[in-house]
Structure formats: structure tokens, C-alpha cells
Computed example of a mutant assay.
Amino acid sequence: MKLPVTTLSRALRPFPVQLSLPLHWGELDAAGSINTLYFAKFFEAGRRSYYLQVLKPQVSPSSYASFAAPTTIGPILKSCQFEFFTPVPFDGPGSRLEIGTRIKTLLADRFVWELVVLSNSPRLLQASESTSAPASAADGYVLVARGEAVSVMFDYSLHKKALVPSDIADAIRTAEQSDVQQRADQRAGE
């Protein structure tokens, strides 16, 4: 099956946070591809970048500090799943992956992340088909993985679920520009 080729700007348009990560030889598996275990690390980097690029500039320093390194109320990863479309080859020094991160659903006590990973590996591009006619081979990217994760707000002092703080929810709504599905009226206990 040939994978579709697209431009980076088209693929990452819906994602307010975009991150470029280097690949390393030590991330290879026995087959010579990037080990899928590392995608959890790549997705964590995407979520962390969201906190730094979206939330930190829009909330008070004390609110961000509590959220990012919680001693009271902060996020905890409840679940995550990955869908892999093709093995990612390591093309040597300079090999990179592009990560797109967004929050697609905001609930009273949690948010649902959507993450994508793209590669412009020459080997992947040669084996793929162009669907949006990139201007040059350097502009072509292949979607190699997609993931979804759920972060639940947790009160670390009381050891129980909590609500998303209003300033954090407002910052998410602003970043996602109403694309985020809001269900703020859903009870935290559900």
C-alpha cells in the first residue's frame, strides 16, 4: 500500500502546536526502523510543548506552575493509543520527525489529545504517492503515526479526580479556536 504524501503545512494546519524532533541511531529496532516504543516519548514531547507554548503564556505563573508540576491539581495521563501506518527508517544524522499536537475534546475533568507524526524520509517518499503535489521532494511528508491520549485532572493532595481549572480551560479554548468540542457541563464524576 502506498502512503499519501502531503505538505507539512497542510498536514499540521489543525494543530496549534508543532514540534520537530531529531531521530537517533539508538532509537532503532532490530529491523532498522525507529522502534515504536519511542513514539510514546515523541507524543509526550508534543504534550509538553503544548503546555509550554499554549498554556504557560496564557495563565498566571502560579497557575501554570501548579499545572505543570502539580502539588495540588494537575493533569495525569489516563490512557493513550497509537496507530502506526509504516515503519520509519533512520536516514542518518539530520533525520527528523514532525509532531502535531492539539486538544480535540475538552470536558469538565479531562481533555482528549490528538497527535500526528510525519516524516520526510527520502525512503518513505520514494515508496509513497503524492496526493497534494508538494512543490519539491523536500516539501513532501508522509503521515507515519497518529495517536490519541486522555489527560484527567487530578487533585494530588486529596488523591481524587478534579475539574479542569477555568483559566486552563479558557487557554485551551483560545488555542483551539472553537474547534475543540466542549462538554463543560458534563459532571466530573462520569
Rank of each mutant, 00 (worst) to 15 (best):
T131A: 02
S79I: 04
Q182C: 12
P93F: 10
T71D: 11
S9A: 03
K104T: 07
L52N: 15
E148G: 10
P89L: 00
R48E: 11
T36L: 06
L77M: 14
D167W: 00
Q53R: 15
S130T: 10
W113G: 01
S20A: 10
T86D: 07
D185A: 12
A184C: 12
F85C: 01
G140K: 14
V117C: 04
S178R: 14
A133Y: 11
E98Q: 11
G74P: 15
A175W: 13
E190N: 04
Y64N: 02
L158I: 04
S63W: 03
G26V: 12
L37M: 03
S136P: 09
F43R: 07
S157C: 04
V54Q: 15
S130L: 03
L21K: 06
V180F: 05
S151A: 12
L23T: 03
S66W: 03
R10K: 05
T131I: 05
G140P: 11
P61E: 15
K78F: 13
D167S: 13
H159Y: 12
Q58F: 03
R123D: 11
D185P: 09
S121I: 05
V164I: 15
S166A: 15
V5H: 01
V88A: 02
A137V: 13
V112M: 06
S95H: 07
T7Y: 06
D179V: 04
D167P: 01
P4L: 02
E190Q: 10
R110G: 08
P16M: 01
M153S: 01
T6P: 00
I73W: 02
Y156F: 13
P75E: 14
I73P: 02
A169Q: 09
A11K: 01
N120Y: 11
F42K: 06
P122A: 05
I99C: 02
Y141F: 14
R183E: 14
E190K: 07
F85H: 13
L106C: 00
L3V: 02
S95I: 05
I99L: 08
K161N: 02
F67A: 03
S95Y: 07
L55S: 14
P57V: 07
R173G: 07
P122N: 11
S79C: 02
G46I: 13
P165Q: 12
S20Y: 00
R13N: 06
F39H: 09
A69C: 13
T131Y: 08
L19V: 07
A108T: 11
Q126T: 15
V152E: 01
L124W: 14
F111C: 09
A68H: 13
F67V: 04
V152T: 08
G46L: 12
P122W: 04
L52G: 15
D185M: 09
R187L: 06
Y51S: 15
F85T: 01
V144T: 05
I172G: 04
D139Q: 11
L19H: 05
T105M: 06
F67Y: 10
S9V: 01
A40T: 08
I168T: 10
V117W: 00
Q81P: 00
F43H: 10
T7I: 01
S166I: 12
P93I: 09
A184P: 10
P165V: 08
N120R: 12
W113I: 02
S157D: 09
